[in-house]
């Protein structure tokens, strides 16, 4: 990542020459480490209990089935890193899907429809950013309003589920690249991975990304340091909205339909993935790769429950809730200990 992953303990202050060279994990990586451990345990448990669990096919499916969630979680990470929250992403996914379905049934080509449905998310994000920044409305309420707005628009665009028959989308949904033993990847998966890579570079290697972290650390300080706080804050919501628009496209490819009730509660999954991925909801600490791991944890929970067969689907929710509990309590303890 940005700085050395492992750093020796360093003397604080200047006077004390503490030559302790014991290698220790930087405090910033501890939450993510927790995620890695959980992931490893799940893989080990799954692999030992079920045959065919640790196969390329299963792992590829975790990514393919959750590619839209990966994109959403990446966008959400930006917002949460600044200390905000975005409740509108689930509704934007639905809106983007509905609009694409509506446009396809009205004869628009994929070349126009696809950019439009991503830009719809961008637009919603821009509106949210302006509400948060210019009118100083709390992100919670502003994105709540955007959520209602997007859902309402969905019903206007597509009161019923609209199937998508556009050849491009169909092709995208059916394409598989990979080996015969199941280690495959779909265009959606590729898009998701590309988004992760871009987000990683943007967050860690651009001034904008570093400003995102600075705002999460202390917005007032960032402002007094002369950083472009206003622009950055609006931009994170634009990014999250765009990711949601793109997520909506991926979901439309996945389900080959546009439906106004798509993605209900998906924002919670995205937030859960980010939190489980080790990002602090207070902002300023966390990694986009952590959020990807968080999505992987959520995906594996579902996979294990499917493999088990006897477990009912509602256990997914309960386990996610329990994991959330463990992670937020652990994060809290870490913060307390660091003080």
């Amino acid at each position: 990542m940005a700085t050395d992953q492992l750093t020796p303990t360093r003397s604080s202050g200047t006077a004390a020459p503490a030559p302790r060279t014991r290698w220790r994990i930087d405090a910033r990586y501890q939450p993510v480490l927790g995620t890695v451990v959980v992931l490893a345990v799940m893989l080990a448990v799954g692999g030992s209990r079920y045959e065919n669990f640790l196969t390329g096919r299963v792992m590829a499916n975790v990514l393919i089935n959750n590619s839209f969630l990966v994109v959403l979680a990446v966008g959400m990470t930006f917002v949460i890193l600044t200390g905000g929250i975005d409740l509108s992403v689930g509704a934007v996914v639905a809106l983007s899907g509905c609009i694409s379905a509506w446009m396809f049934t009205h004869g628009w080509s994929a070349g126009i429809t696809i950019p439009v449905c991503v830009l719809v998310g961008t637009l919603v994000g821009l509106v949210v950013g302006v509400m948060v920044h210019v009118f100083e409305i709390q992100p919670f309420i502003a994105t709540l309003a955007a959520m209602f707005l997007a859902r309402g628009l969905c019903y206007l665009v597509a009161p019923e589920s609209i199937p998508i028959t556009d050849p491009t989308i169909v092709k995208l949904s059916q394409t598989r690249w990979g080996t015969d033993d199941g280690l495959v990847i779909t265009p959606s998966g590729v898009i998701a991975l590309a988004v992760v890579a871009i987000a990683f570079v943007v967050l860690h290697y651009t001034r904008f990304g570093r400003t995102v972290y600075a705002i999460g650390g202390s917005e007032q300080s960032a402002r007094l340091m002369g950083l472009p706080v206003a622009r950055t804050k609006v931009l994170v919501y634009v990014i999250s909205g765009t990711c949601a628009g793109l997520g909506g496209l991926l979901f439309a490819i996945f389900s080959r339909s546009g439906y106004s009730l798509t993605g209900v509660g998906m924002e919670l999954d995205a937030i859960a993935a980010v939190v489980i991925g080790g990002t602090l909801l207070t902002g300023g600490s966390g990694f986009v790769l952590g959020s990807v791991l968080g999505v992987a944890v959520l995906g594996l929970i579902q996979t294990i429950i499917t493999f088990q067969g006897t477990l009912s689907s509602w256990w997914t929710k309960i386990v996610i809730g329990a994991l959330l509990l463990v992670f937020v309590v652990l994060q809290r303890l870490l913060v307390l200990r660091r003080r």
């Binding site: 309960i318 809730g321 959330l324």
Partner: peptide, 16 residues
């Protein structure tokens, strides 16, 4: 966050 936990898990428990 604290109440998000039950928001997520609560409906699962109700179904249980």
């Amino acid at each position: 966050v604290a109440t998000l936990i039950f928001m997520t898990a609560g409906r699962g428990i109700a179904m249980l």
